[in-house]
């Protein structure tokens, strides 16, 4: 409890208001200078490119209704590559990378022995948690944007581009479709916030980053499995992955905002609960390394 004594969060907040931003800046710099972060982003960027190239090279046209959403329409309109890639990435690839980053937040520092130096700087534990979470959120945004951007790019390069057909059968212009792609990216980023908070929470409980990463990724898979069991229907609206694939509602005409709102509310609930638990655990944690 020694290290906790000097770091009453409110006091430092009043004394050094600018410190949080400096800390956030250095956190983001460390995160995005890491080789691992870049490797994950490049792997994510490869998914839409792989899809686009595979569809381009295959001689047989894809039958409608087979494979992931819109796969059959990529040849007619390259703008669908981004959506198809996001559909493919949402269940596993994105949670995997986010789990790695979020699970690493506190446990990684503890493992490297840098956590105590971070706390010696008069930053306060709350602020450190917030900064760490902000870093994870930034990665969520970067990961989703990478998939969307690389998908759009691959689609534009390899296929013709034209007006986009929505799920409702209506057609929208290229400009509006890029707006919708941005909305989808925003939706998926929001979807991953709850998982990031869970990763942060688990990360405060251990000094082994790999354990926290694995636990986070496993939880995301478990949540999706539970979401598919009809026997547990009462539980479904409370699972953080419940609305993950509902971003298709943004591809209807008119846009159905219900799932966007429900999803945001649910993720906010996870952030609040996991954040409170993480704060409780982390502020009581004996930081020895």
């Amino acid at each position: 409890m020694l290290s906790a004594k000097a770091n009453g969060p409110t006091r430092e907040g009043a004394v050094r208001p600018g410190l949080g931003w400096a800390l956030l800046g250095s956190e983001l710099a460390v995160l995005f200078r890491r080789l691992r972060t870049w490797a994950m982003l490049i792997a994510l960027a490869a998914v839409p490119i792989l899809i686009a190239v595979a569809v381009k090279l295959s001689s047989r046209p894809t039958a409608p209704g087979r494979g992931p959403l819109f796969l059959d329409r990529i040849t007619q309109n390259g703008l669908f590559v981004a959506v198809t890639a996001l559909v493919v990435c949402v269940p596993l690839f994105l949670p995997f990378t986010v789990g790695v980053v979020a699970g690493d937040t506190i446990a990684g520092e503890a493992n490297l022995g840098t956590l105590r130096y971070l706390l010696i700087a008069p930053a306060g534990r709350i602020r450190l948690l917030l900064v760490k979470y902000a870093g994870a959120v930034a990665f969520c945004l970067a990961a989703t944007a990478t998939v969307a951007a690389s998908g759009a790019l691959a689609g534009v390069v390899l296929f013709p581009v034209g007006p986009v057909t929505l799920l409702s059968g209506d057609t929208i212009s290229v400009g509006e479709s890029s707006l919708r792609s941005l909305l989808i990216a925003a939706y998926i980023t929001v979807s991953l916030l709850g998982l990031s908070a869970i990763g942060l929470l688990i990360s405060t409980f251990t000094d082994v980053p790999v354990g926290a990463m694995a636990a986070t990724v496993v939880l995301s898979v478990v949540s999706q499995v539970l979401d598919n069991l009809p026997q547990l229907e009462w539980l479904h609206p409370w699972l953080f992955s419940h609305h993950w694939l509902s971003f298709a509602d943004l591809l209807r005409q008119p846009i159905s905002w219900t799932s966007f709102g429900e999803n945001a509310l649910l993720q906010a609930g996870y952030i609040a609960v996991c954040g409170a638990l993480a704060y409780a655990k982390f502020s009581n944690k004996d930081v020895l390394s």
């Binding site: 609040a272 409170a276 704060y279 409780a280």
Partner: peptide, 12 residues
């Protein structure tokens, strides 16, 4: 310190 962690889920 554990108090908010208990109160918040309760409030929700």
């Amino acid at each position: 310190r554990w108090l908010p962690a208990l109160l918040l889920p309760l409030a929700l």
